[in-house]
């Protein structure tokens, strides 16, 4: 049984059109995803593809004008808003994108102790600080007294100390130099190795591949492919979806090939494959129907042409 299972998740935002009328802007579309215990699953995609929305949906912290359909289960049981509120910070923890999430007016040790929901708060905090090589003097420091790398370790330490089983990390590494990045990502691998499930949200394929077991690729609000990390090799022939292949081939180390065009606007052409306008293999069928999700070579793909 998967730790987390997301089935057919769709989200749209209510937008006011005029004084009292509303319309709905779709932002996520029929998304599938699973995370097992002991596994790091990376969610990759361009900015605006809906990665953070997925994380917020799982945590139940979407803004109140969001409309959600589909199903999410955690350990086999449905995630309702009540259950999400109960699990958040206990079983499911977020490692936020930015260090700005730390309270600037509270010593970081105290903040981490607040995050501990089971067991002795001080002990668990000390333990997690030791694990991430944060000295005891760091406990009493305020966020502004920490270097960027240290602050990030504090964020990960908070997630570990909380005792959560599912860790969701939202872009934890942009702009870090390679050593610090390797270390930060290594922490997530360690968490998975002791039995947690980790959902790692990133736009950086190369770094995500160093720790992830599986990769979910998002495009224009849906998951177009779920691949194993090993599929990202050579010229990308093992990959299933043309967008994934384009991402792989666009890396500076793999050809730096720029795929022309842009993802479609949200909600534009709901009845076509979102990638069709940029796809060299697109046929009539792609323009008239959303391709369904299907299993292919121990992965998932949302493309009628993939084989």
């Amino acid at each position: 049984m998967a730790l987390l299972e997301v089935n057919d998740l769709s989200i749209s935002f209510e937008q006011s059109a005029g004084w009292l009328r509303q319309r709905y802007i779709p932002v996520l579309h029929q998304l599938q995803l699973t995370v097992d215990a002991g596994e790091v699953v990376a969610v990759l995609g361009a900015s605006g593809a809906g990665k953070s929305l997925l994380a917020h949906a799982i945590l139940g912290i979407l803004p109140s004008h969001a409309r959600i359909t589909g199903e999410m289960t955690y350990r086999g049981e449905r995630l309702t808003p009540q259950r999400q509120a109960a699990l958040r910070g206990m079983d499911i923890a977020l490692v936020p994108q930015s260090v700005a999430y730390l309270d600037p007016l509270m010593p970081v040790g105290e903040q981490v102790r607040h995050a501990v929901k089971q067991g002795n708060k001080r002990e668990r905090q000390r333990e997690s600080f030791r694990l991430y090589r944060l000295g005891e003097e760091v406990e009493r420091r305020y966020p502004f007294q920490l270097s960027g790398g240290m602050a990030r370790r504090v964020l990960v330490a908070a997630a570990t100390a909380s005792g959560a089983r599912l860790i969701i990390a939202d872009e934890p590494t942009p702009g870090l130099d390679p050593d610090v990045m390797r270390e930060a990502l290594g922490r997530f691998r360690e968490l998975a190795d002791v039995g947690c499930g980790v959902l790692l949200i990133s736009h950086d394929i190369a770094s995500a591949l160093t720790v992830a077991d599986r990769i979910a690729v998002m495009y224009a609000g849906t998951v177009v492919e779920i691949a194993r990390a090993a599929d990202f090799a050579g010229d990308g022939t093992a990959l299933r979806h043309p967008y994934t292949r384009a991402l792989w081939q666009a890396l500076p180390q793999n050809g730096f090939v720029p795929l022309p065009g842009e993802p479609p606007q949200l909600g534009e052409r709901p009845h076509a494959c979102a990638f069709a306008s940029r796809c060299s293999a697109a046929t009539d069928a792609c323009l008239h129907e959303q391709p369904p999700v299907r299993e292919l070579r121990r992965g998932l793909v949302r493309c009628v042409h993939a084989s």
Partner: peptide
């Protein structure tokens, strides 16, 4: 203002 870490608020928008 930085959010208090790990605490999230959501009020009804409408």
């Amino acid at each position: 203002k930085a959010h208090t870490f790990l605490s999230f608020r959501s009020t009804s928008w409408s």
